[in-house]
Design a protein around this nucleic acid. Structure first.
Lengths: 215, 215
DNA sequence: GCAAAAATCAGGGTTTTCCCTGATTGAAAT
DNA sequence: ATTTCAATCAGGGAAAACCCTGATTTTTGC
């Protein structure tokens, strides 16, 4: 039986392009949503096998829409389609009940694979991201359900992050916080590990996105 | 004769989807680029009629790439394909030499219209944006060419700035630009002097504000 | 054509970040 | 009560960024 899919994305060109590609592969695109709210309505009324869910959408984002769909239509699986590869977001997406996560940078073939896998009841994770969840021996670090790995950064780390993103040097941060340079370095390192962001530029962007600093 | 098009976008799924849609319409997609640098190379080697240029791309953004292509291959027209509708960015795109500007929220039909118009030598502006350039009497507010731009930093400096703001290291930037580390250091130093911004975090914020990179 | 600006790089120095291991204390959770 | 985690810091090394001076070659503007 043909797989029945709903596409949710705020960009029309992306929706239409993806529809075209999926139909070439014999996938039935039975619905199109331009925000999370529409996606929920479609999932409830049409009971698709899979929803391809963009995360950043106006009105109601993909994260919340996923949670609602999984709750109201448990048979419908959700694959997150994202621009971002931040662990933070991925964790949230899986705890919201997504069965797959792929990047828009991924080739379409990968997206197609993801649909097939998820439709079989499996999970799918973009290979480049899967590494984050795997230790050196190749074992899953955590089961994909109970990820307390969504490491929220601590209070002090947040303080340091803010000052780093504001362009302060380690020495000045240490002074302002009345701790040693080593401590600030420790914090910065831990922040980077937790967020999987390994540059000042990246931390700055993260801080802006999270509202820790403003532009 | 069939229209020959190059697509430049950092998301593979968008590239493939757009290609699929254009080919259905009988447009020849003769090349695919995943950043500005590749777009320039393709424009020079393949002389397409039109380049569909995403603005925010890693390495070398659509703005810079457009300027270079317009300069080196004047017969090739560029249509900007953007998520943003800020006047600031649109202005810059047109001063860089773009012939069209459409949003990713636009329907594909509009994109197709834009290609046809631009190929005839006309300009195309997404209707929702066109309003910004028109006054109450329906006249163009500005000629689409002489918009004032405060270009403090040079082209190469801008390139370096983008990669710095993307979190790239000096060595990697040097490699991508095929110059020595010393040169990149020079550029970075000059940028900082010119902008009076003396931290990576500050440069990152500046780059975001200026639309050189996106969040 | 000429001067200014941009782009290129060298050499050599200081400072800072980045990365590792490892340790102590205290608080919070189970 | 035990473990986990936050917060604190040390030592030491490698890499990268930062800063200065100065020089050559192209490009570009007038």
């Amino acid at each position: 039986m043909r797989t029945r899919v709903v596409i949710a994305d705020d960009h029309a060109i992306m929706r239409e392009g993806l529809k075209s590609l999926l139909e070439k592969k014999g996938v039935d695109v039975i619905g199109i949503a331009k925000n999370g709210r529409e996606a929920i309505e479609l999932a409830i009324s049409a009971h698709p096998d899979v929803v391809m869910m963009d995360i950043s959408m106006p009105d109601l984002n993909g994260m919340e829409a996923t949670a609602t769909i999984r709750q109201k239509v448990p048979d419908t699986k959700v694959i997150a389609l994202s621009m971002h590869s931040s662990k933070h977001i991925i964790d949230k997406m899986f705890t919201s009940g997504a069965s797959g996560y792929i990047l828009k940078e991924s080739a379409f073939e990968e997206l197609y694979d993801a649909i097939k896998e998820v439709n079989k009841g499996n999970f799918y994770l973009t290979p480049s991201i899967a590494r984050m969840y795997v230790d050196y021996d190749g074992n899953m670090v955590k089961a994909l359900g109970d990820l307390p790995v969504s490491k929220e950064i601590s209070k002090k780390e947040r303080e340091v992050l803010q000052m780093v993103a504001e362009g302060e040097k380690t020495r000045d941060i240490a002074e302002k916080m009345s701790v040693s340079i080593k401590t600030v370095e420790s914090h910065r390192r831990n922040i980077m590990k937790k967020l999987c962001i390994f540059s000042i530029a990246g931390l700055t962007k993260f801080a802006i996105k999270e509202g820790i600093i403003s532009l």
